[in-house]
Amino acid sequence: MANGRLAQVLERHRAQLSSDWIREQTADGVLRDTRIDEAELRGQCDEFLALLVRATLEGGTNVSGPAFAPVRDMLERMARWRGERGFTPSQTALFVLSLKKPIFSRIRVDFEREPGALFQEIWRATELIDSLALLTTEAFQRGREAVIARQQAEMLELSTPVVKLWEGILALPLIGTLDSARTQTVMETLLQRVVETGSEIVIIDITGVPTVDTLVAQHLLKTVSAARLMGVECIISGVRPQIAQTIVHLGVALSDVITKANLADAFKLALSKRGMGIGARTGGV
């Protein structure tokens, strides 16, 4: 079968291919980059070649077929590995593309006396390497997206610190813009902490929220409503005049939401609701 010849080339010259290939990548300056050392690179190249040989012997050049599954998996892992270490998509694709020249050299030697077959095998090798390089780029992309998603989730978590001010009183100082996704996370985190601490009063401080338009106000009010359904009272502090106007605009029954100009006033109110207050120490020091 004509397909089998490329596989034979790969298998027969595996050692030579490996060293030529590494030299190609080194020449491109990859090794000068301390993100990958020679031992690691050699490991990746050898692993890839071994898998490629087996795949081509079994499945020709059909990269999406079952025979190539191990190759695809390895490329996926390799691409993510490089993505995480800051390699560019080009550098990652170069891992596969730089295998072309070494393969062509071997093909030229093996098919010296068959010019017709020579062209065919070179073409077949080109198709194979190009498809694999494309797979690498896609895998790189997926890896990047996964990192971004994870970082977004971490950022959301970090930006929702819930603080216990006193027994039964929690504070949530919000900083930054409130959009739908963020509000959802804020609500969940806050209400979870409410259950964990058994707090009945929550102070949501919005001093650090730059814009409060009707959408944000709606989000805030949803949080207040959800808390109320759980038997928790919310006080919103850090309310500036414009925000007060927005709330009124929304036609919300103001008696439903207690608002205070600043966190200190809100805290005082919360304490009094729990039957406590702050006073000066009497008597001697």
Binding site: Q184, M187, E188, L191, Q192, V194, V195, G198, E200, K222, S225, A226, A227, R228, L229, M230, G231, V232
Partner: peptide, 28 residues
Amino acid sequence: MRPAVAITLVELGLSLHGVRTALDVERG
């Protein structure tokens, strides 16, 4: 009422006005 349930009810538009709520039986 569980947090996930409370959040969903608010989205659903059910406010349960006129029904008192508390965190647990003791506080209730």
